[in-house]
Amino acid sequence: MADPTTENERIARRVPESIVTEDNLDLVEEVFTEDAVEHAPFGQEARGTEEIRESLRRWLEAFPDFSATVEDAVTEGDTVAMRVTLRGTHEGDFMGMEPTNESFEIQNMVFTRIEGGKVAERWLHPDTLGMLHQLGILSPPGGISAQT
Rank of each mutant, 00 (worst) to 15 (best):
M1W: 11
D3H: 02
D3M: 01
T5A: 15
A12L: 14
R13H: 06
P16A: 04
E17P: 02
S18N: 07
S18A: 10
S18F: 01
S18L: 04
S18R: 06
V20T: 06
V20Q: 05
T21Y: 03
D23W: 12
N24G: 04
L25Q: 07
L27W: 06
V28Q: 07
E29Q: 05
E30D: 14
E30I: 06
F32C: 08
T33L: 11
E34F: 08
E34V: 13
A36N: 11
A36S: 15
E38Y: 10
P41I: 09
P41R: 07
F42E: 09
E45M: 15
A46L: 09
R47C: 04
R47K: 12
G48A: 04
T49I: 10
E50C: 08
E50Y: 10
E50W: 08
E51H: 02
I52Q: 14
S55E: 04
L56M: 14
R58C: 02
W59V: 08
L60P: 05
E61W: 03
P64W: 13
P64C: 13
D65F: 02
F66W: 10
F66K: 06
S67W: 00
S67F: 01
A68E: 11
A68M: 12
E71T: 15
V74F: 14
V74S: 12
G77S: 11
G77T: 13
T79Y: 08
V80N: 09
V80R: 08
A81W: 10
R87C: 06
H90N: 05
E91P: 00
G92P: 01
G92D: 03
D93R: 12
D93F: 10
F94T: 01
M95T: 07
P99Q: 09
P99L: 07
T100W: 06
T100M: 09
E102M: 09
E105H: 08
I106Y: 05
R113I: 10
I114V: 15
G116D: 15
K118N: 03
A120D: 12
A120F: 03
E121R: 00
E121T: 00
E121M: 00
E121V: 00
R122F: 12
L124V: 15
H125V: 15
H125S: 15
H125D: 14
D127R: 04
D127G: 05
T128Q: 07
T128W: 07
L129M: 12
G130C: 01
M131V: 03
G136V: 11
I137P: 02
L138V: 09
S139R: 14
S139H: 14
P140K: 09
P140S: 13
P141E: 03
G143S: 01
G143V: 01
G143N: 01
I144H: 01
S145D: 14
A146E: 05
Q147Y: 08
